[in-house]
Nucleic acid binder design. Sequence first.
DNA 1: AAATAAAGTTAGATTATACAAACAATGTGC
DNA 2: GCACATTGTTTGTATAATCTAACTTTATTT
Lengths: 263, 263
Amino acid sequence: MCIGKLPTQKLGFAKNETKFCRTVYTTTLTQTEENYLKALLKLTEESAIPAVGTNELALHLGVKPATVTDMLKRLRDKALVSYEKYGKISLTDNARSLAIDVIRKHRLWETFLCRNLGFSWHQVHEIAEQLEHVQSVELIDRLDAFLGFPKIDPHGDLIPSKDGVFHARPKRTLSMLGVSQTAVMVGVGDNSASFLQYVDEVGLRLGMDIWVKGIQPYDALIEIVIDGKSITISQKFAAQIFVGAKLADQEFLDLGLDREGDL
Amino acid sequence: MCIGKLPTQKLGFAKNETKFCRTVYTTTLTQTEENYLKALLKLTEESAIPAVGTNELALHLGVKPATVTDMLKRLRDKALVSYEKYGKISLTDNARSLAIDVIRKHRLWETFLCRNLGFSWHQVHEIAEQLEHVQSVELIDRLDAFLGFPKIDPHGDLIPSKDGVFHARPKRTLSMLGVSQTAVMVGVGDNSASFLQYVDEVGLRLGMDIWVKGIQPYDALIEIVIDGKSITISQKFAAQIFVGAKLADQEFLDLGLDREGDL
DNA sequence: AAATAAAGTTAGATTATACAAACAATGTGC
DNA sequence: GCACATTGTTTGTATAATCTAACTTTATTT
């Protein structure tokens, strides 16, 4: 058994292999470094914010801005971000690939936890935050196969494929629907445990048909019907519910809904 | 997302609950600390060595003796080992419980990796070394249930139950058998990848019937018959193969052999 | 028992990650 | 375009985990 110097060791970049359109340099990042890259990817790409700042990153990661500045300098030395004093922060192509791999691992583990171990979707984030840092390409490839190469995780977020591609479909939110329109819930925009528990309470589930019965002209409150029950929700809430057209069989598979019998 | 101070934070011991015969104090150990406790447990209990030394520990953990001395002082301050300069090293009861939990996690993950993800037994150790440090009681309990509460891991080692008990059966080795005796392979004494690959090569598998056809008087080489094939093995090799009497149905379940159809 | 070998410890240095407090740059309001 | 707020950086400090080199203690051998 070797407890080793995994987080301490010097960087040894090694060109690995070229597949599809990206070149991957294998290197061992510390868990902290992986978290910084993941945060940067999320803040630069998933939200539509143009430039990410030190403060915002610090808030997102639960550290102080000074710490972020320090880390950015180290990430720059390792060619993972391009960044200059008071300037813009951006991931290098290589770092972006690495960050996508971490997200892939996170979402595959979340899928496993919900589908096979019976966790609810609001319980899995914390655990997946740890599992995502386990280093083994073989492991994640086999997990992917075990799960049947899912494209969507339990929150409705896209799982990038092995070659780093998000097979995205355009997303609409429940707040975009007009009166008397129907749609199917396909995901959520807020993955906090408190929001997810609220969604559960309200009775909404992935794959569920939603009918917009009415919208109050005065305060824009939305009345929807699900499972024959009528409930009232806010615009703020509706803006975090992703919806799509009626699900095709393939998408049902993606969501793993056909697997609930497993447990 | 919070990358947090998990490994950095001060110890906050909190008395948790008393169950069966042990009181568990919840505390957050760093991965390194967990590895030291695990190594101490292995060296003090699994092998029959009376006293563990700094050198031996250092060798086992892949660090220098000086590092071990440092760490022992810190573990003593946290009431995890009892130890005095140049004196004997031993785990406190609480630390022993924590170490057993780590071993439990390790062996459950190994079981999962072999049974469900199709890894060979010589591939799983490294990955389980990482997975064992994921902190979530809920996770490991659910994994345990998912696997059907196995008592034996892919190497034939005992998996402690949730309350820290190894449900041990006395172990005999193949080298203890006499001519014309038969037995069933139930485990191995050496978990190194090289040994396990050798076992695979020879054609031995857990649960397999073994017939000792003969033992050379001159050099004690053993001739065994498995699956109708006759092979010759050394005493050294035979001493690392654990055997038992014919398997009862229950033990078949423990080994997970009835599950191979899953993959 | 003295000499030597082995085992264990201390001291000082290093790296990764974090913080607080002080400081510097950038941006905004009027 | 100055005053002030916001944002970002530097400096100095701390802890966890490691190392090397020098030193001390214990054990073994003759």
